[in-house]
């Protein structure tokens, strides 16, 4: 074996909105079980890029290959069924349901037909695994809590373990630290590390926070104005002058 087949391969991925090019000719590869970070200033096209990967937007040009198959025009729910699961930047959980109901919903999502779910009344088969994941998110004692009453950080962790519960092969984490405290950010780091160690999953973290990135990922790709301007290890990226100019300068302002 000379080369492992990549899990995800985006080639020449381009998205235009009228005259504006949000994502321009991006090549991006994720290997199985790899953790990568995608960074870039506001408006760099990070969210658009993710929307292309998950199918929320369709690409103007380019192809996306996942698990060796072309998924460029596959609809979102089918991409999720194949194993591309995202956590949203703005926490996206079911506020009016309990923690455990949120988990169960995520768990039943892959490879289950409506007709099969109609006959599914017993959740004991997934109970153990749910508790295992709630444990690493420190939410096990809140199983019956309404999600709307959780703290912002807790909601973030819940959405992350829900996404893991959906058995992803590729997990996209969009700003897992957005809007949470420093203490909670450390817990998020621990959670992601735990997932890296115990789960068989590739992770792409989209973030602003360099300190956070340093703790969870060795490999970084920098996006600016819709184009990849650098990729490499965290040290390489920090030494890169273009990156310093556009990205690190921007964080200094923020």
């Amino acid at each position: 074996m000379t080369e492992i087949e990549p899990l995800l391969q985006a080639e020449g991925l381009t998205k235009r909105f009228g005259e504006f090019t949000a994502v321009n000719d991006v090549d991006f590869t994720v290997q199985p079980n790899e953790t990568k970070a995608l960074i870039g200033p506001n408006g760099a096209g990070k969210t658009t890029f993710q929307n292309l990967l998950t199918g929320k937007l369709s690409a103007t040009e380019g192809t996306i290959t996942f698990d060796g198959e072309d998924v460029t025009s596959v609809p979102p729910h089918e991409r999720a069924q194949r194993g591309i699961i995202r956590k949203y930047q703005i926490t996206s959980v079911y506020e009016d349901e309990t923690v455990i109901e949120n988990m169960r919903l995520a768990f039943r999502s892959r490879a289950s037909s409506p007709w099969k779910l109609l006959r599914t009344h017993d959740d004991s088969d997934i109970r153990e695994r749910i508790e295992e994941l709630l444990e690493i998110a420190n939410l096990n004692d809140k199983q019956d809590t309404m999600v709307g009453t959780l703290s912002h950080g807790e909601k973030q962790w819940l959405e992350i373990v829900m996404a893991v519960g959906a058995e992803p092969e590729l997990l996209l984490l969009d700003e897992p630290t957005s809007g949470i405290s420093v203490g909670e950010t450390n817990d998020t780091v621990d959670l992601i590390k735990e997932i890296r160690e115990t789960e068989n999953v590739a992770i792409v973290v989209i973030e602003h926070d360099m300190d956070f990135i340093r703790k969870v990922s060795e490999s970084i790709t920098v996006l600016d104005r819709g184009e990849i301007i650098a990729s490499g290890t965290i040290d390489e990226i920090e030494r890169n002058e273009t990156v310093q100019q556009i990205y690190l300068g921007e964080t200094a302002d923020a």
Binding site: A80, Y94, E95, E97, L117, T120
Partner: peptide, 27 residues
């Protein structure tokens, strides 16, 4: 029986957050 099944849970998921439910893999 229907709303108490896993199917019913998906319906509540659509009510609560349709896009989230879609992106977990439900059609």
């Amino acid at each position: 029986t229907l709303v108490d099944s896993a199917f019913g849970r998906v319906l509540r998921g659509i009510r609560g957050n349709q896009e989230r439910t879609e992106f977990f893999g439900y059609d």
